[in-house]
């Protein structure tokens, strides 16, 4: 009897060891994925800032310089008009810079709540003026938080929006976010070119879809993706939250 007991303990202990090591590996993988997500969010923020500085603030300040250069002090009425225009351009630049400063906070966006972070993303998307947006964001008053999940969710949304901008050729985007019964629902629907999801999934290539699936799986979420060529794409994500 003691011999069998020893053998059983040995076998059970080995299983326990494997289980603990497996858990540890999963934890490490999660941490590494979190780090990767954090870096990607920061990169995305930096890209947005660089684009905004170049395309928006840069242009406004150039225009200000041009306007100020063309001021003729002999014609005081026109000069006053031009100075006023320049002032307006500088104010607009300051406003834009303030918006960019907010973005520079990076993760702090998530700290203000996932609703705000998502809204920030939508605001930037809206500013491009390329899409007709229909937005329903009911996550502002969310009492519960989960900082790690928030960061992943934000990155998921960034990736999805990035895909739409780059590949979808969509004109209308419908975004719907709500929390119900401890599940956070994210729905993104667009009328773009669509694609064959099954084929892309099988190929394990392209459009960051694998990274999206992997991250959703990591936080025990569910991804439902409906798409067909020339028929737009409908993405529904359900994540246990918090």
């Amino acid at each position: 009897m003691p011999i069998f007991l020893m053998m059983y303990i040995r076998s059970y202990n080995r299983h326990k060891k494997n289980h603990i090591l497996e858990k540890e590996n999963m934890r490490r993988e999660f941490e590494s994925e979190m780090l990767q997500t954090r870096i990607e969010v920061q990169e995305k923020t930096m890209q947005t800032i660089a684009t905004e500085l170049h395309d928006n603030v840069g242009q406004l300040l150039s225009l200000t310089t041009l306007t100020l250069n063309s001021v003729n002090l002999n014609n005081s009425e026109k000069a006053a008009q031009k100075i006023e225009n320049s002032l307006s351009l500088v104010n607009k630049s300051i406003k834009e810079l303030r918006e960019l400063a907010k973005l520079l906070h990076g993760e702090q966006i998530v700290e203000t709540g996932i609703g705000n972070a998502i809204q920030q993303e939508i605001n930037w998307l809206e500013k491009t003026g390329t899409f007709e947006l229909s937005v329903s964001n009911q996550l502002f008053d969310l009492k519960e938080t989960s900082p790690d999940k928030d960061l992943i969710i934000l990155r998921l949304l960034q990736e999805i929006i990035n895909n739409i901008i780059k590949h979808a050729n969509a004109t209308i985007i419908s975004l719907n976010f709500y929390h119900d019964n401890h599940i956070l629902h994210l729905s993104v629907k667009e009328n773009g070119v669509g694609f064959n999801y099954e084929r892309i999934k099988a190929k394990k290539s392209g459009m960051g879809l694998n990274s999206i699936s992997k991250r959703i799986e990591m936080i025990n979420g569910k991804l439902i993706l409906n798409s067909a060529p020339n028929n737009g794409t409908n993405i529904l994500i359900e994540i246990p939250y918090p």
Binding site: I9, Y12, N13, K16, K17, I20
Partner: peptide, 8 residues
């Protein structure tokens, strides 16, 4: 020992 969550 078996019940304990850690392993030795």
């Amino acid at each position: 020992l078996l019940k304990d969550s850690s392993f030795i």
